Simulated assay, not measured.
Amino acid sequence: MFDRLFGRKRSLEGSALPIVRNVTLGRSIVLDPLAWRRFGDALRFPFDRDTLQIVAQGQVTLNDGGFVHRFYTDDDVMFQAVSNDAAGQDVTDVTLFAPWDSQYPTMPFDRPAWLQRLTARTFTAEGLPEYRRFWFGDEAVKQEPVTFWEDLHDDRDGIVDRRIFQTSMLFARDLDGDGRELLLAIDQENEAGEVSFEIMLGVALELGEFRA
């Protein structure tokens, strides 16, 4: 999903990556599989393991002052923690996402059409049910998606190895009981100008449902 670019860039500050709830690049995360298996076949979330080996780490600074810390496996499963601080000590939200689909534009109108889908009240894709806009609520017919740069690291020296510009929107659908499945739809472009469209499915995690 995230293609390596040639060259390396200096970190914005510091020489090491944050350790978030004991999670960082090079470590393993052990998950409680009941966090998603309890929903059985109702969940489309394509995940079948309880341990993640982290091989890359991403950092995002949000416009509202928040921070997103992302941890990736070699097959692009993403463990994500949102915090109020850059060091990741004040975590407010944790989610686990797995790739569902990845496509590349082949025609000039492909990208505008995809970006238009990210503004809609609902989102559907082949093989999936309908999901409703989760960010900003679904009252408005259209809603502009969220945009940001993600700095990606392949080792702990604090040097940015790749930067990806992302335009994304989060959708969700309710499951029986108190469950919810998330769908993250992304338009991403690397510094070489290569564009792809990504769909990831996920679930929210409680702080007690993982350890590293």
Rank of each mutant, 00 (worst) to 15 (best):
G26Y: 07
V23I: 15
R27W: 05
I29E: 01
G7Y: 10
L17E: 00
L25I: 08
I19G: 07
F6V: 11
L25D: 03
R27M: 05
N22A: 15
L34V: 08
P18S: 06
I19N: 10
L5N: 14
I19K: 14
L31Q: 04
R10E: 15
R4A: 14
R21V: 07
L25S: 03
L12C: 09
S15V: 04
R4W: 11
S28G: 06
A35N: 01
D32Y: 05
K9A: 12
E13A: 14
I19L: 13
I19T: 14
D32Q: 12
T24H: 09
A16F: 08
L17C: 03
L12N: 10
S11M: 10
A16R: 11
R21L: 11
T24G: 06
R21K: 13
S28Y: 02
V23W: 00
R21M: 12
T24S: 13
A35H: 01
I19A: 14
R4F: 12
V30W: 07
V23M: 08
F6R: 13
R27I: 06
V30D: 09
S15M: 06
R8D: 10
R4Q: 13
R8Y: 08
R27V: 08
F6E: 14
G7M: 09
L17Q: 03
G7C: 10
G26P: 03
R4D: 13
R21H: 11
V30F: 05
E13N: 11
R8T: 14
G26R: 04
R4N: 12
V30R: 13
R21E: 12
G26K: 02
S15N: 09
P18G: 02
S15Q: 08
L31F: 08
